[in-house]
Design a protein around this nucleic acid. Structure first.
Length: 426
RNA sequence: GCGAACGUAGCUCAGUUGGCAGAGCAAUGGAUUGUGAUUCCAUGGGUCGUGGGUUCGAGCCCCAUCGUUCGCCCCA
């Protein structure tokens, strides 16, 4: 009888080598977040199923990892973090001091078919500013994620932030006199623009009550590449002014090179109410790396009062694929200060004692009690990334001495055991 | 859900028309009995994803199933 050793379909194992890379990414996310004054929070990966069903209707149930627990409760593994954030905020809405600047790195699950850059499980950096109606919230969110991008070595030549505004799309749809109650459905169709044929697109738009003339005018708008073009056709409006100042202020922050207006950015989620953005690789070979925007009415859908909010989600899968494609993954070696190597069992108690002493000094120390030939022991020590090897050899030990070998320079010195605790690795 | 390709040692992969299960790297031991980059030798390691079928004989052909990858579809 044998069991499958493979991870559950769509999930990953993280061996130590993989874990170093994951921690490198998480460290960047955490450090960038802290630099911007964001506080970390978390919640359990298990949530009530209703949290997601209430949000988007029953349709999403098919993509939930869900089950009934022994108490008959409907439970789901969280597919995204925002509903949990909303729950946490609503729970203490009256005692929290707004605006909140919170971040988290949750593992999220979706039961769905896998494609490049999408698995059934991933980690997704979430950063949200809750309770800040001013556009400065958007600017902080964008600056935060671009700072993280920079920390990964990604410049404007690698990635772009495509910025749009739901209010602009509404204004355009009003302008062409599309039925107001169909705006959301039309936006969903527009989101598919690149994936279907023009004929198909026109047919879907017609289903949403757009005449051929209206569709033609919409397509004219969607082909526009600059705000000025839109302004000339649509006239001044709140969304254009907002986008203009957003781009100007990014420019002033030195981040303008990353950002551009992109009228085709819609985002699938229905709760966005203003600015929307996506980060894509410059070669456009991968799916969106990161996406977000303003969602001022989400909390009210959970039964609270409206609270202005801006946030983004940034998954670990696509970004690591991009960094790999660009050759920007860091070389991460194991790190260890001392490898303590007793020659035989006779020196083992001494090794244990010395290792413990060094560890109490805060040093990282690995012991090798395999008593292999020194050749093998040193090879092993090198593989662990040890900076120094402390060889406990019979003759020296008898005189209260040990051999301290520098693994980089391959030089060694004989040191008294009594002074070992003062040794530094570098 | 649809289509295609793939699944053989820890890893990367060969395996001819159906005829003894292979290589490189890694591991372990030795050459070198107390010192890591080179070299040489040896050793261990396989349900050939799984289950059926055809056949004297299947890693190879057929069916099913699971998994992986890619492209659609769908969706963040």
């Amino acid at each position: 009888m044998s069991i499958s050793l493979q991870p559950v379909k769509g999930t990953r194992d993280f061996y130590p080598d993989d874990m170093r890379l994951r921690n490198w990414l998480f460290d960047i996310w955490r450090n960038a977040s802290r630099r911007f004054g964001f506080e970390e929070y978390d919640a359990c990966v298990l949530e009530s199923e209703e949290l997601y069903i209430r949000k988007a209707g029953d349709e999403i149930t098919g993509q939930l990892y869900n089950f009934e627990d022994k108490g008959g409760r409907r439970i789901a593994l969280r597919p995204e973090m925002t509903p949990s954030l909303a729950r946490l905020v609503l729970q203490r809405q009256s005692s929290l001091t707004f605006p909140l600047k919170w971040f988290s790195i949750p593992q999220c699950f979706r039961y769905e078919r896998m494609t490049r850059g999408r698995r059934r499980e991933h980690f997704q950096w979430n950063a949200d500013i809750v309770g800040q109606p001013d556009q400065m919230a958007e600017l902080e969110a964008l600056s935060l994620l671009l700072t993280a991008m920079r920390m990964m070595g990604l410049g404007p030549e690698h990635i772009r932030v495509h910025v749009n505004d739901r209010r602009l799309l509404d204004a355009i749809l009003d302008h062409i006199q599309a039925p107001r109650e169909n705006h959301l459905a039309v936006m969903v169709v527009m989101d598919k623009r690149d994936k279907i044929t023009p004929e198909e697109l026109n047919r879907l738009l017609e289903e949403q009550g757009l005449s051929p003339e209206m569709t033609a005018r919409l397509n004219t708008f969607l082909a526009m590449r600059s705000l000025d073009e839109v302004l000339a056709e649509l006239g001044e409006c709140e969304a254009i002014a907002s986008l203009r100042t957003l781009l100007e202020r990014l420019e002033q922050s030195g981040l303008g090179g990353y950002a551009r207006f992109d009228i085709t950015v819609v985002r699938g989620l229905s709760y966005y109410t203003g600015t929307v953005f996506e980060v894509r690789d410059a070669g456009a070979s991968l799916r969106a790396i990161c996406g977000g925007g303003r969602y001022d009415s989400l909390l009210s859908t959970f039964g609270g009062q409206d609270v202005p909010a801006v946030g983004f989600g940034f998954g670990d899968v696509v970004i690591l694929e991009l960094l790999s494609d660009l050759g920007l993954l860091p070389q991460l070696d194991r790190e260890l200060e001392f490898a303590v190597i007793p020659f035989s069992q006779n020196e083992a108690p001494l090794a244990l004692q010395i290792a413990q002493g060094l560890r109490e000094q805060g040093r990282t120390v690995s012991t090798d009690f395999s008593y292999r030939k020194l050749k093998k022991a040193l090879q092993r020590a090198d593989a662990t990334g040890a900076l120094k090897a402390l060889l406990l050899l019979p003759d020296e030990a008898a005189q209260g001495l040990a051999v301290l070998r520098d693994m980089k320079t391959r030089t060694e010195e004989t040191v008294p055991l009594a002074g070992i605790m003062e040794q530094k690795a570098d």
